[in-house]
């Protein structure tokens, strides 16, 4: 079987794997590729262990700059684990271990080998459940700026407004910026969390099933938002909802039991998947 992987990276380096190895195939195909955008990050043979349990097995994945890449797969397949490697959330808990690389461009640094604090300054995250701080709306959006030592009121005002407008929340909250974030509805809270992540202008934002706790209307708003943001910031999104992936992403990666099964253009993955397991999953035969 020939995994047809959409050519996307300018990276053509990894050819060292044995023939027949699907990961090697993945990179071999990339050689022939014109570059729509270039990559913001590139996961190479990344393995990850929670204590003794291996959760990721030599995963490869390109993340295209200023596009939406969706990670799909049944629960427990490792998609959230992979996402959380990108901002080193696993480092907060003892006993976790990485092996392999996530190259970050344009600096070409290995993200899993540098100071996690610096990684998190560059890559923002939006979580499964809206998790605003128990503070005012303004303080929530300004939090990421204060963490970076930005204290000047005029700068904060301007960037808080910009982030809230960006997150399509400004009109709803502009009159109650000093009200508690907990006074907002679930969907508004999640958009507030997106504004909070946007305010420091990160290079990439990770979304971990951002709509799983929301009703359909709020979900639609978040989906619109993700698509609008795509032109400006690189987005990696985990979703358990395949329709969502097909609606909002440019590229889709399908994972199963800690392995990367298939990666490609979203249209192609959903209409003509290469791997029979992908086909089974998207047609709803398991997961």
């Amino acid at each position: 079987m020939q995994p047809n992987l959409r050519p996307i990276t300018r990276e053509t380096t990894d050819v060292s794997s044995a023939p027949g190895d699907s990961n090697a195939d993945l990179h071999r195909h990339q050689e022939s590729v014109p570059l729509p955008h270039g990559n913001r990050a590139d996961v190479r043979k990344l393995s990850f262990w929670y204590g003794k349990t291996q959760a990721l097995k030599e995963v490869n994945l390109p993340v295209v700059d200023r596009k939406v890449t969706a990670l799909i797969g049944p629960s427990g397949c490792g998609k959230s684990t992979l996402l959380r490697c990108f901002n080193r959330m696993h480092d907060l808990y003892p006993g976790n271990r990485y092996d392999g690389e996530i190259r970050l461009y344009p600096e070409d640094e290995n993200l899993v080998a540098i100071d996690p604090g610096l990684v998190r300054l560059r890559i923002g995250m939006v979580f499964q459940k809206p998790n605003p701080f128990p503070k005012s709306i303004y303080a929530n959006v300004a939090a990421g700026l204060e963490v970076r030592g930005i204290k000047k009121r005029s700068v904060l005002d301007e960037r808080v407004e910009r982030a809230l407008r960006h997150a399509a929340l400004w009109d709803e909250v502009k009159d109650r910026l000093n009200g508690s974030a907990y006074g907002l509805s679930g969907g508004q809270q999640q958009r507030l969390c997106i504004a909070r992540a946007l305010a420091p202008e990160p290079e990439m934002i990770l979304f971990d099933e951002p709509t799983s706790a929301l009703d359909p209307l709020a979900t639609a708003k978040i989906e619109d938002l993700v698509q609008q943001l795509a032109g400006e910031v690189t987005i990696l999104i985990v979703t358990h909802n395949m329709q969502q992936a097909s609606r909002i992403s440019d590229f889709t990666a399908f994972m199963l039991m800690g392995e990367m099964v298939e990666y490609g253009n979203t249209d192609q993955v959903f209409t003509a998947p290469e791997d029979p397991r992908t086909d089974q999953y998207i047609t709803g035969r398991f997961g």
């Binding site: 610096l118 300054l121 560059r122 963490v147 970076r148 030592g149 930005i150 990160p202 290079e203």
Partner: peptide
């Protein structure tokens, strides 16, 4: 700037 923060600030932090 590194991730939106100055080197000076990061050193102090």
């Amino acid at each position: 700037l590194i991730g939106g923060a100055t080197r000076q600030f990061l050193r102090r932090r």
